[in-house]
Amino acid sequence: MRVAAFDCGTNSLRLLIADVAEDGTLTDLRRETRIVRLGQGVDATGEFAPEALERTFAVAREYAEVAAEYAPEKLRFVATSASRDARNRDEFFAGIFSILGVVPDVVTGDEEARLSFLGATADLPTEAGPFLVMDLGGGSTELVLGTRDVEAAVSMDIGSVRLTERHMPVETPNDEQIRTALTDIDAQLDQAAQVVDFAAPRTFIGVAGTVTTITAGVLGLDSYQREKIHGARLSVSDVDAEARQLLSLDREARAALPYMHPGRVDVIAAGGLLFSRVIARIAEAVEAGGGDLDIMISETDILDGTALDLARSQS
């Protein structure tokens, strides 16, 4: 079955057109990412800004033309954190429907977690589990524990865009802003630990653009190279060092990094801090229980999970 999956988050709008075989094998035909910052200001105002809606609609029009070239049998437009929070989301729904002919499916945090887990673990052997998948978005971050299926999941109301707007709306944050952001992160993690057993995983899987961008930095890539990032193994100290480096740079220096997408420049420092703190807390819990955590990065995530789920549900 040929499917088209759209993932609209707080920061990016992505498209995957793929053929899904009966055995669940997914073959990419087209994969696109645009930074639209739909969630601009939503944390403070509770509404989508007019310019954010127009950026999103402009990319949706572009994607509609791309999808028409491939004639997918089924489409699904998944909208996540920002769309759950905005009071004027009906305006967003109407605009997307007029462009693509489908109503955005605003998924719950639990559904977002399930789709992320499906996309991240579809090709991994169960012997590597239990898995803890972290989907670090612009507005929310999901932690999902399971082996074959989701066993526990939590959606935290923090992400690269929210943390930037709340605590780091400057080029280079100072120590007090970083401490305040860490306090926010730790409070969310304390709550998440009541739902997800941080000591349980054998393999930690980080997904989404913030995570893969930071991985490109850890690997020292001279451009964004998906094939080198996918499956990469990292250490807690590697990520911590990269996060500290990003926090110390000004906007111009971050923009000059050869693997950096322009749309991530102003939120990547907060995202790196969040990524670093999460894996440090998880690794600490695993080690306290006598285990050893394997930290890997995946380029397959909620977008792939949406495509796979769409094919399964319509087969």
Rank of each mutant, 00 (worst) to 15 (best):
E51Q: 14
A4P: 02
V211T: 12
L249H: 00
V59T: 13
S140G: 05
L234P: 00
S298H: 08
R312G: 06
A288R: 14
V154C: 03
T183K: 15
P50R: 08
E111D: 13
A4K: 00
R87M: 08
N88K: 00
A113R: 07
L26G: 08
P125L: 07
L16K: 03
G206D: 05
V196W: 09
F6V: 07
L310H: 02
E51F: 13
A94M: 08
E111K: 12
S160P: 07
P169Y: 10
G24W: 06
G291Y: 09
G290D: 10
Q40G: 06
R179S: 15
T180I: 09
L273F: 04
R84T: 05
A270P: 11
A187H: 14
A128M: 12
R89P: 06
A82N: 01
R251T: 15
A253I: 07
I185C: 09
R251Y: 06
L75T: 02
T56P: 11
S98W: 03
E73W: 01
I96E: 07
E165D: 13
A82R: 03
R76E: 06
A49L: 14
I17H: 00
G24R: 04
F131I: 08
T80C: 08
A67G: 01
T45L: 03
S83E: 11
E176S: 15
